[in-house]
Design a protein around this nucleic acid. Structure first.
Lengths: 366, 366
DNA sequence: ACGATGGCAGTAAGCGCTTACCGAAACCGA
DNA sequence: TCGGTTTCGGTAAGCGCTTACTGCCATCGT
């Protein structure tokens, strides 16, 4: 107990205080705290007692400096622009994906005693590089989500600190972790075109420059070509990974007087949300009139009517893997491959036209 | 450019390297980097050029040690047990609330150049104290979400480092930030009992020991008593803040052969999700047969059918405020009050029985 | 019984940075 | 021209911790 209890912090407690209190040297304290060179049990006890009594917690910065290891991994992800707004809007949901990945990273990190230093970058950020460098200076390595830094920027940062990217592209000095977009999209498209035999289908794209989007679009087109039908594409089918983008596309197509395809394959679940909502507004039934599918399997996918058929990415594992790879880079024990690819799986629910017994939205799928 | 480009990191670059490269002393480099004591423009240029050329990034740990300021704030929140599971289940959604608060914290932190060091604690964690202390050692202050540490634990930690709790209770040395549960619940309950004139109503509780739940339950009961009707309460109406809990309660009540009240006031939105789903399964219509309300206004609230009437907490602002308060504590400029309370607002959508024009679920409310 | 051996624990040298302090140089007025 | 006053920039002393090195003492062999 301190002299006063009014919340005034006494003075930083150091290892010297503990040493004095226990009647030993600072080296012994440090050794006990780190479990090295097992000091004699009696000494150990004395130190532990002093630590306990004083409520001593070693300073991370000092430790890091001495150790050349911070046990902190920096995570940078992208945040939509309007953060000041309190309401849950698009932005709130779009973060979900990142949040779940982060949870995976955290789980992986925890196993090794690492903590996560998180930071976001928004679209208007004029110098993400500075921000990211700063995070880099505070951590042992960086995990960068998609769309936070240009490839050259990544390469530059990776020169000075270990970097793992998520759903990006490998650079000479960074490693990329992603899920198997192509296989997932292939499976989904086949389900629609072969199992259901839909005659027409469109791919509602995400950000054109996103590697994920490119891979999905390509796989989609390959299958469509294989089956021998024509894909509905073009400028008008370009979304932005957000619900509003999906809504806009549907409205545009309808306003344009164009017919709709029998199935709409959305670049991600967000987009599908916008599409389904807008179709409903126009009295178009899903899946009877138009089938709709997503990609990612975010939580709300299960709350839609009908529940959304989509491709499940192993989102948490994506994060956990990213950490593992980064850890390998940091500890230098082995040089990981330039890219790690995780498998996806098709989740069939109602929106594709299948009849499935629905389970409560809050229960995990198979 | 380094001699090789194969990703091998040369050797840690220090301020000495920069100094040598620029032909100045380390002091000058430091001064330029920190904008203090404006060195002469020419010197400044030289340093900046060297920094740029070498791609130098100062080491956060060393800086922190010297400065006695890490510019890092620790954030600890609770994570449900089964993290290994990849599927989005209950746990995924329940985190949303925490994630949004964290976003608010991050926004606040960013204004001051701080970063967030995040960590979670799960139910089975036998020593959250150790974890939290470790985070404390790596940061300048701590923001603790609800249910991560016992009050005495908090008091103990707060002795050594500034602490702000969210939706908890103040201790002699920590500050609490919460939203005005009582006012929100009062407004909501009045809306149900007075505006709608429902004759019977039940409160479906959350964790019994959560301060939020206690405050909500109390406010509910006060209003019910004022209006002069009887609240349906008791063991059977006890949930757990999760959808499955809400579902279980409804099933239990029905199985028990008991009638349902005209309105069910849920402790939070999650619970309401479970309730609405289960009612629908039993063919009970919302709001025609039973009105249902939530609390929090999480994103999915807008995706339910009917859309959920609930109390909006200023979730992001909660986080931002927590940071601001913590910052005040860290910088010691002013001693904040023991508790900061933020206002809530009633969000009327369809589930209470009101007729409202619905807007797309992905658009922010009023 | 005495030197060799080994196990603990203490001393001190950094880790990379900030900054107090001080000397040198440049400038001023007389 | 010369002291006094600035202004810049360098030197060095830490920040709190880890750990190599070293010295002490206890134990062991002969």
């Amino acid at each position: 107990m301190d002299t006063t209890d009014d919340g005034v912090l006494p003075r930083t407690l150091t290892i010297y205080d503990v040493a004095r209190h226990a009647g030993v040297s600072i080296a012994s304290v440090s050794r006990v705290l780190n479990g090295r060179n097992s000091p004699r049990p009696e000494t150990r006890e004395r130190v532990l007692a002093a630590v306990q009594e004083l409520g001593f917690v070693p300073d991370g910065a000092a430790r890091a400096l001495s150790n050349r290891l911070k046990e902190v991994v920096g995570v940078v992800f992208r945040r939509p622009a309007d953060v000041t707004n309190d309401a849950f809007s698009e932005e709130a949901e779009s973060l979900l994906f990142a949040d779940v990945i982060n949870r995976g990273i955290e789980a992986g990190a925890r196993n090794r005693g690492y903590d996560l230093l998180m930071s976001t970058v928004d679209v208007l950020d004029h110098s993400p590089h500075a921000r990211i460098s700063s995070i880099g200076g505070k951590s042992d390595g960086l995990i960068l989500h998609d769309q936070v830094l240009s490839p050259v920027g990544i390469a530059r940062v990776a020169q000075r600190t270990p970097v793992v990217t998520l759903a990006g592209t490998p650079t000479p000095s960074s490693v990329n972790v992603r899920s198997d977009n192509a296989a997932g999209m292939r499976e989904l498209t086949k389900h629609l075109l072969i199992d259901h035999g839909y005659p027409t289908v469109a791919y509602l794209a995400g950000h054109v420059d996103s590697p994920d989007n490119v891979a999905r679009a390509e796989a989609f087109e390959v299958v469509v070509a294989e089956v021998g039908i024509e894909a509905w594409t073009g400028e008008i089918w370009r979304g932005n990974y957000m619900a509003s983008g999906g809504a806009k596309v549907v409205n545009d197509v309808l306003a344009h007087g164009s017919p709709l395809p029998r199935a709409i394959v959305c670049a991600n679940d967000q987009t599908a949300i916008g599409v389904m909502y807008t179709l409903a507004q126009h009295g178009i039934r899903v899946p009877q009139d138009v089938a709709v599918t997503g990609f990612d399997d975010i939580p709300v996918a299960r709350h839609l009517h009908p529940q959304l058929t989509t491709i499940r990415q192993p989102i948490q594992k994506l994060g956990a893997t990213a950490f593992d790879v980064l850890y390998a880079l940091i500890s230098g024990e082995r040089r990981p491959a330039a890219e790690v690819v995780l498998p996806t799986s098709l989740v069939i629910r109602g929106s594709c036209g299948c009849q499935v017994a629905t389970s409560p939205p809050w229960e995990a799928g198979p």
